[in-house]
Design a protein around this nucleic acid. Structure first.
Ligand code: MN
Ligand code: MN
Ligand code: ZN
Ligand code: ZN
Lengths: 135, 135
DNA sequence: TTCACAAATGCAACTTGGTTGCATTTAAAT
DNA sequence: ATTTAAATGCAACCAAGTTGCATTTGTGAA
C-alpha cells in the first residue's frame, strides 16, 4: 500500500477532482518558491496546456485557498502556493525591479495605519519594490 | 491684465504645450478629490476624446509629476492629481469595496518593515481595502 | 465492472485596457 | 506670417483574461 500524496489530500479536502492538469499544476506550485505568472506556468508545464483550462484552474485553486493571486503592479497576475492570510493578515510581497521575481514575505510585521474616521479597514495589501538578494 | 491660471503655470513649468485637451484634463483633475479611471475621465470630459490622446496625456502628466497612477488591484489604472511621493514616501490608497472609490490617504504614518538581509527596499505601495465613510 | 452524470477540458471566438504607426493639425518660437 | 516640433485623431493592433459549447474524464452508485 502506498500512502496518499499531499497534493491528493489537498484536492480531496477541497472537493476538487484529481485531474492530470491539476496534479501537474499543484505539484509545480509546491516546488516553486516564487510567484508564477500564466506564462511562467505555461512554460514550465511541459505539455502545452489550454489557456482557459489553466486560468479556470488558477481561479478554482484560489477560491479553494490552495494558491493566492498577487498583484505586483505590472498588470499581470502572479500566483503562489498557500493562502494569502497568515494569522489573519495578508502578507506582503517583494517585487525585484531587476529580475522581476515576486517573493512572498511571510515574516514581516503587519503595518499599523490610523485610517480616518468613518473608514473601515478590511484588508491591507503591501507591495515592496526594490532589489532582491540575488541581484 | 488677467493673472496666469494655475494649470497654465503647471504646464509651462513642465514644458508641456497648453492644448485644449490638456487644459480640460488638468482642470478636471484639480476639481476631483478621488482617483479617476480612463472611463471616468472619458465620461466626465463632455467632448468625446480620442482614446490614444487621453492615454498619452495621462502618461505625459504622470512623467511630469502632475498626476500619479494608482494600481488598486482591479487591473484598471486610476489616476489622481499630484505626485505620488509625500516627503519621500509613497502615500497609501484606500479602495472602497462598496462604491469602488479610490482615495489618496495622505496623512498616514510611514510604515517600517524589516526586510530580510540582502533585499534593498526602494518603495512601498499600500492598498487598503474596506468600506469608505460614505458607504 | 460497468454505467451515469457532473465536472473538467479544449477550442474558438470574444472582451477589454492599453499601445503603436502614420497622416493631419496646432502651439509657440522666430 | 513662417516654420517646426509636438499633439491629435484614426485605425489597426496587442496581450491578458473570459465565455459558450461540444467532448472527455473522474467518481460514486449500481
Ligand atoms: Mn504571497
Ligand atoms: Mn494617491
Ligand atoms: Zn532580483
Ligand atoms: Zn464607498
Amino acid at each position: 500500500m502506498m500512502k496518499t500524496k499531499d497534493y491528493e489530500l489537498l484536492l480531496e479536502r477541497k472537493g476538487l477532482k484529481k485531474t492530470k492538469v491539476r496534479i501537474a499544476l499543484i505539484q509545480h506550485f509546491m516546488n516553486m518558491e516564487h510567484a508564477q505568472s500564466y506564462n511562467d506556468l505555461q512554460a514550465a508545464l511541459v505539455s502545452e496546456l489550454d489557456k482557459s483550462t489553466l486560468y479556470r484552474n488558477l481561479t478554482s485553486f484560489e477560491q479553494a485557498g490552495i494558491i493566492h493571486r498577487i498583484n505586483d503592479h505590472t498588470g499581470i497576475s502572479k500566483y503562489a502556493f498557500g493562502e494569502p492570510q497568515i494569522h489573519g493578515n495578508e502578507h506582503a510581497h517583494f517585487v525585484c525591479e531587476c529580475c522581476e521575481t515576486v517573493y512572498c514575505m511571510e515574516g514581516l510585521v503587519p503595518l499599523q495605519l490610523n485610517i480616518p474616521k468613518g473608514f473601515k479597514t478590511n484588508n491591507v495589501q503591501t507591495v515592496i519594490k526594490g532589489i532582491c538578494a540575488k541581484c
